[in-house]
Computed example of a mutant assay.
Amino acid sequence: MFWKIVGALIVAWLAFMVIGSVVGFLVKALVWVAIIGGAVFLGSAAYGAIKGRKEPKRLP
């Protein structure tokens, strides 16, 4: 009976370790995707502001 409890605890510990590493990897990946996406957004906004029309828009 003792070894069944110890075995179940080891299996549960291994499952938590695997799940934790996968979740940690996904969180890191999402952080990097957000950083890259923000940089691309800021770059495209700056490019659009620089290359925008030189003359102001007029109402017809």
Score class of each variant (00 low, 15 high):
residue 60 P to S: 03
residue 21 S to L: 15
residue 23 V to Q: 04
residue 6 V to S: 01
residue 58 R to A: 03
residue 4 K to E: 10
residue 6 V to T: 03
residue 20 G to Y: 08
residue 36 I to C: 02
residue 40 V to G: 00
residue 51 K to P: 00
residue 27 V to D: 01
residue 50 I to T: 02
residue 46 A to S: 05
residue 47 Y to A: 14
residue 25 F to H: 09
residue 31 V to G: 04
residue 16 F to Q: 13
residue 51 K to G: 00
residue 22 V to C: 07
residue 34 A to Y: 05
residue 33 V to F: 07
residue 17 M to E: 14
residue 41 F to S: 10
residue 59 L to N: 13
residue 42 L to A: 10
residue 31 V to D: 05
residue 56 P to S: 04
residue 33 V to N: 04
residue 5 I to S: 15
residue 55 E to P: 00
residue 24 G to W: 07
residue 23 V to A: 15
residue 15 A to D: 02
residue 49 A to N: 09
residue 51 K to C: 05
residue 10 I to G: 02
residue 5 I to Y: 11
residue 29 A to D: 10
residue 38 G to C: 07
residue 4 K to V: 09
residue 47 Y to N: 02
residue 36 I to N: 07
residue 26 L to Y: 12
residue 1 M to A: 13
residue 32 W to A: 12
residue 48 G to V: 08
residue 44 S to Q: 10
residue 8 A to C: 04
residue 7 G to C: 03
residue 56 P to D: 08
residue 29 A to N: 06
residue 10 I to S: 11
residue 15 A to W: 14
residue 17 M to I: 15
residue 46 A to E: 00
residue 26 L to W: 07
residue 7 G to F: 10
residue 58 R to P: 00
residue 43 G to Y: 01
residue 49 A to I: 03
residue 57 K to D: 02
residue 32 W to K: 14
residue 6 V to W: 08
residue 28 K to F: 13
residue 27 V to H: 04
residue 53 R to Q: 08
residue 56 P to L: 10
residue 4 K to I: 04
residue 14 L to D: 06
residue 45 A to D: 06
residue 23 V to P: 00
residue 19 I to E: 12
residue 8 A to F: 13
residue 34 A to D: 09
residue 14 L to S: 11
residue 29 A to G: 05
residue 31 V to K: 09
residue 32 W to L: 12
residue 52 G to S: 07
residue 10 I to Q: 12
residue 3 W to H: 11
residue 6 V to Y: 08
residue 12 A to V: 15
residue 6 V to Q: 12
residue 30 L to P: 00
residue 54 K to W: 06
residue 44 S to W: 15
residue 20 G to P: 01
residue 26 L to Q: 08
residue 47 Y to P: 00
residue 19 I to M: 11
residue 59 L to I: 11
residue 11 V to F: 15
residue 59 L to D: 15
residue 20 G to C: 01
residue 31 V to P: 00
residue 34 A to E: 09
residue 10 I to Y: 06
residue 14 L to H: 02
residue 32 W to G: 03
residue 5 I to D: 10
residue 55 E to H: 02
residue 1 M to C: 02
residue 46 A to W: 11
residue 42 L to S: 02
residue 17 M to N: 12
residue 54 K to E: 14
residue 7 G to L: 10
residue 41 F to E: 06
residue 13 W to A: 15
residue 33 V to T: 06
residue 25 F to N: 05
residue 58 R to N: 09
residue 26 L to M: 14
residue 37 G to D: 00
residue 17 M to C: 06
residue 41 F to T: 08
residue 21 S to N: 11
residue 34 A to N: 08
residue 1 M to T: 15
residue 6 V to I: 14
residue 12 A to R: 13
residue 13 W to E: 11
residue 55 E to G: 03
residue 15 A to P: 01
residue 4 K to C: 02
residue 56 P to E: 14
residue 22 V to W: 11
residue 34 A to P: 00
residue 55 E to M: 05
residue 34 A to L: 10
residue 40 V to A: 10
